[in-house]
Computed example of a mutant assay.
Amino acid sequence: MRRMVDEPYFTHSAYSALTTGIQVKCSKCHGPGIVTADKDYAYFRCYNCGHQETRERTIYRYDVHNQCRNCGRYYRMDIKDEAKQHFPVLHVACPHCGTMMPGKVHKTAEAYAYIAEIKDGKEPYFGLELWFLTSFQGKPVWALNREHLAYLIGYLSADLREKPFSIPRKTQADHLPTFMKTSKNRKRIVKLLKKMQER
Results as ranks from 00 to 15, higher is better:
11 T>K: 15
66 N>G: 07
58 T>H: 05
155 Y>C: 05
103 G>V: 04
184 K>P: 04
129 E>Q: 15
8 P>Y: 08
67 Q>R: 14
32 P>I: 01
59 I>R: 09
101 M>V: 03
172 Q>P: 01
116 A>C: 06
45 R>Y: 06
53 E>S: 14
4 M>W: 10
20 T>Q: 03
75 Y>R: 02
16 S>R: 07
105 V>R: 03
79 I>E: 06
8 P>L: 06
42 A>W: 03
131 W>M: 09
121 G>K: 03
133 L>H: 12
178 T>C: 07
7 E>H: 04
10 F>Q: 10
149 L>M: 04
19 T>K: 13
1 M>I: 10
95 P>T: 01
2 R>S: 08
84 K>Q: 14
121 G>Q: 02
118 I>E: 08
144 L>S: 09
12 H>P: 06
133 L>K: 14
60 Y>A: 08
118 I>R: 08
114 Y>D: 10
140 P>N: 13
139 K>N: 15
80 K>M: 11
22 I>C: 02
114 Y>M: 08
76 R>G: 10
46 C>M: 01
19 T>V: 08
21 G>V: 00
87 F>L: 11
123 E>H: 06
112 Y>N: 12
108 T>L: 11
153 I>F: 05
34 I>F: 07
55 R>W: 03
179 F>W: 14
106 H>T: 15
102 P>R: 03
194 K>D: 03
139 K>D: 12
99 T>Y: 15
44 F>S: 00
137 Q>P: 02
198 E>F: 01
61 R>Y: 05
182 T>D: 11
125 Y>P: 02
193 L>V: 01
46 C>Q: 01
62 Y>A: 08
59 I>M: 08
39 K>V: 15
127 G>C: 09
110 E>S: 10
22 I>Q: 00
52 Q>V: 14
137 Q>L: 14
111 A>E: 10
14 A>I: 00
76 R>E: 12
69 R>H: 11
157 S>M: 01
29 C>G: 12
104 K>E: 12
89 V>R: 00
16 S>V: 04
120 D>Q: 12
150 A>C: 04
125 Y>V: 01
102 P>K: 02
142 W>C: 05
56 E>A: 05
15 Y>A: 10
15 Y>F: 09
135 S>R: 13
195 K>P: 00
179 F>R: 13
69 R>Q: 11
15 Y>H: 07
114 Y>A: 10
130 L>P: 09
177 P>W: 15
33 G>V: 00
99 T>K: 15
165 F>G: 06
53 E>I: 04
65 H>D: 14
94 C>A: 06
49 C>F: 11
